[in-house]
Design a protein around this nucleic acid. Structure first.
Lengths: 179, 179
DNA sequence: CGAAATAGGTCAGCAATGTTGACTTAATAC
DNA sequence: GTATTAAGTCAACATTGCTGACCTATTTCG
């Protein structure tokens, strides 16, 4: 017997296990599947960059910042915050590390000099490229193996799954601040 | 001027900002977009459950455990570990909380009594249902607004994006251990 | 002009969730 | 009967979130 503990009282004697995934109707099963798909696809997609990150002693938070600065050269700190949905203090830790290590450069805004426009340095672009290439292979393989029509559907549904602001941001009809 | 700091030296005077997202070829742009889609869709999808979780002082880790126990009644601890890809010690914290609060029950295995078969209690099922319903609405709306063909493509690509083991697990042709 | 608002930075402490490493118990397998 | 396996636990630590408080530089606005 395992060591006695208060939790032991929660043991059910010979438990009639519920049928695997009791499904009420077809609609529910579809949505349950969608939950799983999002979890596994995201898990395995983000995973492929981890080896490179570990080499450089960076984390996923650094990768995210690097990615969105690369995608939006000249983005402001506020813009980045809106995309990542984290606090200024959380971003600062990550961003300072990236600046200190020469991956990211800051420049004062043109008209409004309070702004800090963020860009990737050459070194930052090189790193971002390495990270991208790992994920690119995963996407390329998935896209090739499923065909353009499936890809179109994938994009449509993913878009519909996100908040309105993020959609507008991706469409180029909204700013990072609304993402 | 902001307070002087070593980082200030990284300021670029009047920086010629690179053109937004320099795109080499169509293929690259497509894959860059896929990165963004996965980030935003996952961000906003997971977000919708947060309010319920906060009410009960639970986190996303609890939600994930609850979800996969609900999807796989009788799953073993090892199976859950394989799906979540975290360590036993990390899972223990979360799982013990769920058991202590009466959301999850454990039962010894039938043939192999070393196993702990995990199931949701009625209370656990009720909570999982609440969490599911929040996400269900998001999925339902996305599915309705995009149509069955897009949904089919979405599923196909998401599947292709995940590791082989996870695909097999979802197909029912593999066990949780391989996920 | 001067006050208020805005963009950003920083310090300090804390919470959630991940990690390693070492060790234990109970049960099964060989 | 010994080795292996499934699970649990203790301790320490890392990453990445959070709140609260406060500072500076700059722009906006009455």
């Amino acid at each position: 017997m395992l060591k006695a503990s208060p939790r032991e009282s929660k043991f059910i004697p010979p438990p009639k296990l519920p049928a695997p995934t009791p499904v009420v109707d077809v609609g529910e099963a579809e949505m349950r599947l969608a939950q799983d798909l999002l979890f596994f696809a995201y898990r395995d997609f983000t995973n492929v960059a981890d080896q490179v990150l570990e080499e450089l002693d960076l984390g996923r938070a650094h990768h995210r910042a690097l990615h969105f600065i690369g995608r939006n050269p000249g983005i402001t700190v506020s813009g980045l915050l809106a995309i990542l949905r984290i606090t200024k203090q959380s971003l600062a830790r990550v961003l300072n590390a990236l600046v200190d290590q020469g991956f990211v450069a800051q420049a004062p805004g043109f008209e409004d000099r309070r702004l800090r426009l963020l860009t990737l340095t050459d070194k930052g672009q090189a790193l971002e490229k390495r990270l991208f290439e790992a994920q690119r292979d995963k996407i390329a393989q998935a896209y090739r193996s499923t065909g353009p029509q499936a890809v179109q559907g994938f994009r449509t549904v993913m878009r519909a799954m996100m908040d309105k602001g993020a959609r507008a941001y991706l469409d180029g009809t909204g700013s990072a601040e609304d993402a």
